[in-house]
Amino acid sequence: MRYEAPSTTREASALLANAKGKAVVLAGGTDLLARLKSGDIEPDLVVDIKRIDTTQSIKRMASGFRIGASVPCVEIGRSAALKRAWPGVVEAAQLIGSDQIQGRCTIAGNLCNASPAADSVPALIAAGAKASVVGTAGRRTVAVEKITTGPGKTSLGKDEIVESINLPKRPPRTGDAYLRFTPRTEMDIAVVGAGVCLTLNGKGEVSKARVVLGAVAPTAVIVADAANAIIGSRLEDSALAEMAAACEAACNPIDDMRGTIEFRTDVSGVLAKRAAKIAYQRAGGK
């Protein structure tokens, strides 16, 4: 196994493109190292992106935020501006693992690992985040929901690297939230996750909404019916009930040792309602 730590994304991309055999990108390594140790994968080349300076920081720009692909989640939690703008995304990133994991894990890694239960992904999608992807052919910007295509599968080419995750500037009267259900308080994998982002009009009614569920299907699901159920409402009980029903209908989970189909389906609606209430408050709704 060869290990490379290039200093530019272009070099990294070239290494990947020219690699013979299996090549993988290494960010925080909290997924990758566990898989290497268990013998689950045996790559021929590991390309560490942590030395690439464009991946190393959180930048605040007029258009929003640019979160480098090797920024550990602990740094995301320390960014007051990010927390003010996208508290749901920050909370989701901070749910990953434990203090030790936080010091290493990244949201780009969380996304590219393509686990259906990845915590930051529903929150990122709800917030309208985009991935900046660099390959030998150049750069492209892709909506986060377009990256994951199935458990462990992404739409990235062999030579492509996510260089950063970009969040838009938060529109006025907008709030986001993410909640997950785990049997334990921490060190657990989401049995269900729900990310909600909504914008209110001047009257305090929901004018725009995005409801995204995690761990209930092969990839995170954007539940348009759930969003429609609350658009035009002030989250009255009937609207919330309709939203919960839409979430349950959108679930396509598996039955496994982490949760039954029935349980995941029931809890998806419960969490979406709770997340919507938090997002509503954050958007200034009363």
């Binding site: 049997p183 049995v191 029935e262 349980f263 809890v267």
Partner: peptide, 8 residues
Amino acid sequence: MSPPRVLK
């Protein structure tokens, strides 16, 4: 008495 069992 895991959450799925209790909820059921």
